[in-house]
Every structure is written in C-alpha cells, then in structure tokens.
Write a protein that binds this DNA or RNA. Structure first.
Lengths: 118, 118
DNA sequence: ATTTAGTACTATGTAATACCAAGTATTATT
DNA sequence: AATAATACTTGGTATTACATAGTACTAAAT
C-alpha cells in the first residue's frame, strides 16, 4: 500500500473545495489555478482539473468566458456564481468539521503519548 | 450538486487514516470502530468499513483474531501491525500537509475578508 | 510562407474507494 | 422452534483523481 496512493485518495473531494476557494478571489483560467494550487503544494493535473471545472460549471457553481490571449491560444476564464459562493461556504464548514473530527480522534492518541512522555 | 456527496468525497482517503488511528490505541472490532468514529462525528457504514478493514489486512497493516463474545456471535478483533504503525505516521504527515495546504489557500481569502472587516 | 514549439483545452479509459443493499452465520431471546 | 440481535461477507453503483492521447490556436523558428 503506497503512501502516494493514500495521498491521492485524500485529495479526492478536497480539490473541488480548493478550486472554488482559489476562484473566490477572482476569475482565473486553468493554468492560473494549477499554479495557485502548486504554490500551496497541492498538485492537480490537467486530466483532473478540466473535467472538474466542467462538472462545477454544469452544476451551476462556475461560469466562464473566453478571452483572447496575447501569449498563445484563447483562454477560458472561470468565476464563481452566487451559488458557487454559497456552496463554498458549505464546503468551508464541511472541511472544518472533518478536520475537527480527525483531530478529535487523534487527540485521544496524543493524550496517551503525552502521558508516556511525562 | 449536493453537499452530502461532497462530504462523502472528502471522506475518501481519510477513513483509512482514522481507522488506523483508532486502532493505534489498541485492538477493536468493527462496531467499536464505528462507535469511535461516530463519537468523532465521522459516520462510516458497514459496506465501507468491512472492505476497508480487509484491504488494510491484505496490505499487511492490520492483523486480526477471532474472539468469542458473550453478547452474540464471535467478533473479529483487529490490531495494527508494525507496518501499520509506520504507515499511520506517514498518513499523519500527509494529512497535516493537506490541512496546511488548504489553510494556505484559504488564508489568501481570509486576508481579503479580514481587511474588509476592518 | 511553412514548419515547429508552446499553450490551452477535450475526451476517454483506468484505478480506487465510499456507499447501498442483500445475504449468510452465530448467538440470544421469545 | 421461531424470531431478533449481532457480526460479517459480497457485489453492484456512483464518483473522482489520474494517465494518456488527441485537437486547436497562437507564437516563434526556419
């Protein structure tokens, strides 16, 4: 069982949240998003990102417009819809709950570890 | 797009980590694990848990023994192997990294939100 | 002008896991 | 003996991350 695989599974469901979060600051096209995520040390690849953006658009959470580029082919700029912003808030809560849940589970172990340190 | 589905996706890859964490305190059988997780407000259902436990056992991270019960049918008690403990530490790191990454992405938004609060 | 390179996006198939539902098996209770 | 509770097994569905191959547009090189 590989840790890389475990990491990829952990990313499932989180990427959507991160992408909505990135877009909540303002519109961006795919490479922007990839770079923002990379800066946060979350690697997301094209084969994942594009279908994900499409799903979010189809779900009404994103909208996009085409924009000519001076540096190459035209780009698809995405931005959050109002529904996207609402959903992002729900994801905020869900993520926080999950993090707290994991922490709760781990805290029982740390209490044990701490007592053996003392 | 349903928040419940997003939550389930977020749980992907995390359940394994939580289960290993629960078992790091000592052996347990399936219902124990379900209750520990429920206490932490992570709902995991049998159809998920049993195959997951089997996968972890097949990967050498868990071992189990059968134990008669005075309250019903016999139970399968699982415990971490040495490899399981090592893997759990790697998952600890991976989870922490992911949490930090998400926080990093969100921090850029919170800075924006904070400045508009002031 | 043509070819090559870089950039951006699309589509498809694979792998993995959470979940639902149905079922089997063992023991306790009625 | 029949029913209920408990514990585990099995198989199918849905979803998403990823790898890969390809198309399309523009810029740079030839």
């Amino acid at each position: 069982m590989k840790i890389e695989n475990a990491k990829a599974q952990m990313r499932k469901g989180v990427l959507e949240y991160c992408i909505l979060s990135v877009l909540s600051r303002g519109d961006a096209y795919a490479s922007d998003i990839i770079n923002e995520m990379k800066e946060a040390r979350i690697i997301v690849v094209e084969g994942t990102l594009y279908p994900l953006l499409t799903r979010l658009k189809n779900a009404g959470l994103l909208s996009y417009r085409w924009e000519e580029s001076t540096q190459g082919p035209p780009r698809k700029y995405y931005e959050l819809t109002d529904r996207g912003r609402e959903f992002l808030q729900e994801l905020d809560l869900s993520w926080t709950e999950l993090v707290n849940s994991v922490q709760f589970i781990n805290s029982k172990n740390q209490n044990h570890e701490e007592s053996s340190d003392h």
